[in-house]
């Protein structure tokens, strides 16, 4: 009988595993291999260049600009999203209507979000400048996506807007699983709402917050789709919104350097992996078991 079970398991797994191997693992492996060549995308004889591609990364101004901007996004986006999502989740406890509203952006594809926000930001007929004029703040009107000092912040605002909803729902669900009697006990002991949140709620939902850090950290290292669709250039003005993913795409499909682009991909892979591990470490806390 046991024999039959394994055969059944193997039979059930073989198709998904093969698909995974062909469409996920194999491209990854090929990228690792191509990273050490000068493959141009069409040649059948790529030459090996050793670690040359990786050495290039360190004085490629576009890649470094991407690294810098992704770094800033990594500092700002997860923190802002988690803070906002916690505040909104705590503030709208029990009112489901708001949660549906917050979750809305999650239902839109990122391409649609980018196009919508491009219209919001567009200088002459855009919603944002129009709203500023409507409340008499004409001097605040800007070319939001076309000024180097503002462009990346404008993109980050969209990133935050589009991801907050998901975490509101995630944190709300976690908060609902915190037993009421603990809250009541704390209230009886004289703890105010802020203390309850800091000392009771947050530690008890920490696992969800930790998940949030990691997901958002990975998302902050991407940003390709928003930047590609929304920004001047794209990646501009003057590379102020350049992200590593965009640099990789351009290097491969515009510059025809697939080998070098693969090296970028490998670098991003290890960077993302390290940051995920790092975030796991620094956000590690004692796990509280709820009976």
């Amino acid at each position: 009988m046991r024999h039959g079970k394994y055969r059944f398991l193997a039979g059930a797994l073989i198709v998904p595993l093969t698909l995974y191997g062909v469409f996920v693992l194999s491209p990854y492996l090929q990228a690792f291999q191509l990273a050490f060549t000068d493959w141009n995308g069409v040649s059948d004889q790529p030459r090996s260049v050793g670690f040359g591609n990786f050495a290039r990364l360190w004085d490629d101004p576009l890649f470094l600009a991407g690294l810098r901007n992704n770094g800033l996004m990594l500092l700002v986006v997860p923190l802002a999203v988690i803070a906002l999502a916690l505040a909104l989740a705590a503030g709208t406890k029990g009112t489901r209507v708001y949660r549906v509203v917050y979750f809305f952006p999650q239902l839109l594809s990122v391409a649609i979000i980018a196009v919508l926000w491009q219209f919001v930001y567009t200088p002459n007929s855009g919603l944002l400048n129009g709203a500023l004029s409507a409340v008499g703040l004409d001097s605040w009107r800007r070319s939001w996506l076309a000024e180097p000092d503002l462009a990346l912040w404008s993109v980050m605002a969209v990133m935050i807007w589009s991801s907050v909803g998901f975490y509101v729902v995630l944190f709300s669900a976690a908060m609902e699983s915190v037993p009421d009697d603990i809250m009541e006990a704390a209230a009886i002991d004289g703890a105010g709402p802020v203390t309850v949140f800091r000392r009771i709620t947050l530690p008890l939902i920490w696992e969800s917050v930790q998940v949030g850090w990691i997901y958002l950290g990975i998302a902050a290292l991407d940003g390709f789709a928003l930047v590609q669709i929304m920004t001047v250039g794209p990646g501009g003005p003057d590379n102020s919104t350049e992200v590593m993913g965009l640099g990789l795409y351009r290097t491969a499909f515009t510059f025809g350097k697939f080998g070098y682009a693969s090296a970028m991909g490998v670098a991003i892979f290890f960077l993302t992996l390290s940051i995920a591990v790092l975030l796991l470490r620094v956000t590690k806390r004692e796990r509280v078991e709820l009976a």
């Binding site: 191997g21 062909v22 693992l25 194999s26 990854y28 492996l29 090929q30 690792f32 291999q33 191509l34 060549t37 493959w39 040649s43 059948d44 004889q45 790529p46 992996l273 591990v277």
Partner: peptide
């Protein structure tokens, strides 16, 4: 994570087809 990397390394047979000629 390391186990994952090892599994990846074990299946290197899948690599080396993007640039094969005819």
């Amino acid at each position: 994570a390391l186990a994952g990397v090892a599994a990846v390394a074990a299946s290197t047979g899948l690599a080396a087809c993007a640039t094969a000629g005819g």
